[in-house]
Amino acid sequence: MIFQKGSVFTESFKISDEIYLDFSRVFKDFNPLHMNSEFAMKKGFKEKVMHGNILNGFLSYFIGECLPIKDVIIHSQSINYKNPVYLNEEVVLISTINDFYESVKTVEFKFRFTNKNNSITFARGNFQIGLI
């Protein structure tokens, strides 16, 4: 069985200028929190904050391209943001199989996005995929 309860999968990402700018342009989210460091600092952040949904893009890539098989479809996902991510930050996705439902060929994962030292959690959540 490829997917077993407790199995852990990890993948590292970096929020590069290209990812950040392309995301802003494609989805037209130019909120000053994301674009203007001065604005972000006035709101208590270290610098401009990356769009939280960039992490969802990484999650999409992870599910579609990094899991052991490609025959998958996302049923659901949820994410809770815990700390801001800044430009050029390296983030590590740690994903653990929470349960496997053989009856409906469905796998439930929980995940965390952390910094590379695993000392800061940027976001955590879960997603459920079907094996097609």
Binding site: S76, E102, V104, G130
Partner: peptide, 16 residues
């Protein structure tokens, strides 16, 4: 699928 998963989870059973 969601119904079966929810039943398995909440009733604590596993189906084939």
């Amino acid at each position: 699928i969601q119904l079966v998963v929810a039943v398995e989870k909440k009733i604590k059973v596993k189906f084939t």
